[in-house]
Simulated assay, not measured.
Amino acid sequence: MTLTAALLAVLATGACRSLSTRAPIAPLSFADTDSVATSVVAPGVTHVQVIDGRGPWSIHVLEVEADRCTPLLEARKPGSDLHARATTSAIGGDALAAINADFFILPRGTPVGAHVTNGVVLTGPTDRPIVGVVDPTVSPGAPWQTGTGRMRGHARVRDDSAAITQVNRPATPTSAYRGTTDGLTLYTARIGDAVPADSAARRVVLTMIDGDEAAGRAVVVSADSPAVATGMSAGTGVFLAHGSARDWARRRSPGDTVAWRADVVVVPTEWSSAAPGEGRGAQTAAMAAPVREAVGGFPELLRDGRPVLDQQRVVPAFGVNRHPRTAIG
């Protein structure tokens, strides 16, 4: 099996305090199954394997004592572009544990949901839930958050700015993302060979100076309408502007230096508005801590202890049908 991403729980040396070890909680939930085996992966980290012939099911649970351990959670992806794939064991490498994460779009392998690594947005969010890891020094509490991902960022030429509403994600008929109607979409060489044509947009082609998707600078090469696809190579960037951002793009001239910053934040799913940048979710996004790591978290199973699966549209092949699945909570 090939996978595009792995959400990895990495426990560095000394990540767990020397407290008395308690019995793992997970086995108590499987008392009526055929067998339950536990093994200590590291102090404060337990692997539980459950066999239940009624499925039949083989269930693996990685339990981390949150009051004792501070796991370093990373969202890793192989290769230098969005389409690269590798096995979970290959991506895991030096990790204490690796859990495969998110669906990907065939045939190439682009993540269906958002993917953020070390604060860099490799590809932006859709309206489906994500799992985001925040810096505990910035936002104390649980090391991860679930909810709707929202882009937050701006591109600026001197005092002239426009909002960045997406990164490295074109609209496609096979994904949950139908495209933005307002704002800038930033594309880098990570997107692959080309950025698709978009007759509704205004295009600004860039030569990178420094930085990445999180923060960078580039020089404007041209500004026009993208009637055809834009070829991409190392050191090339593109802004596609929609709605009010088209005026910002029209004001761009060759030689302009553009600087930008962009990150992803998590807002509660029930607060997310239909249009990014509006409503209570937008107010929350403006104040939220950016995620350091993120992967897609669809479908959502429980919210505040209540089942919410029936509130989402899940294709049977990716939901109720038998297939290996992973979850975090």
Rank of each mutant, 00 (worst) to 15 (best):
L3Q: 12
T4A: 03
T4V: 07
A5C: 12
L7V: 02
L7T: 04
A9E: 02
G14E: 02
C16F: 01
C16K: 11
A31H: 05
T38Y: 01
V48Y: 02
V48I: 11
V50K: 04
P56E: 07
P56N: 09
I59E: 04
V61D: 06
L62Y: 01
A66R: 11
T70G: 09
T70V: 07
K77L: 06
K77M: 07
P78D: 11
A84M: 04
R85G: 07
T87I: 03
G92H: 14
G92A: 10
G93T: 14
G93A: 14
A98F: 06
N100E: 13
D102H: 04
L106Y: 02
R108T: 05
P111V: 01
G113T: 15
T117R: 09
G119M: 06
P136W: 00
P140N: 03
G141M: 02
P143D: 00
T148Y: 04
G153I: 11
A155W: 05
D159H: 04
D160W: 08
A163G: 00
P170Y: 00
T181Q: 06
G183D: 09
T185I: 13
L186G: 01
T188K: 14
R190I: 12
I191M: 08
G192S: 06
G192Q: 13
V195L: 05
R202H: 11
V204G: 06
V205R: 13
T207E: 11
G216P: 09
V221W: 02
D224N: 15
M232Q: 02
M232E: 01
S233N: 05
T236K: 15
A241M: 09
H242W: 03
P254M: 15
V266N: 00
V266A: 08
P268G: 05
T269V: 09
W271M: 12
S273C: 12
T284R: 10
A289D: 08
P290F: 07
A294S: 11
F298I: 08
G305I: 07
V314P: 03
V314N: 13
V314D: 10
P316S: 15
R322Q: 09
R322T: 11
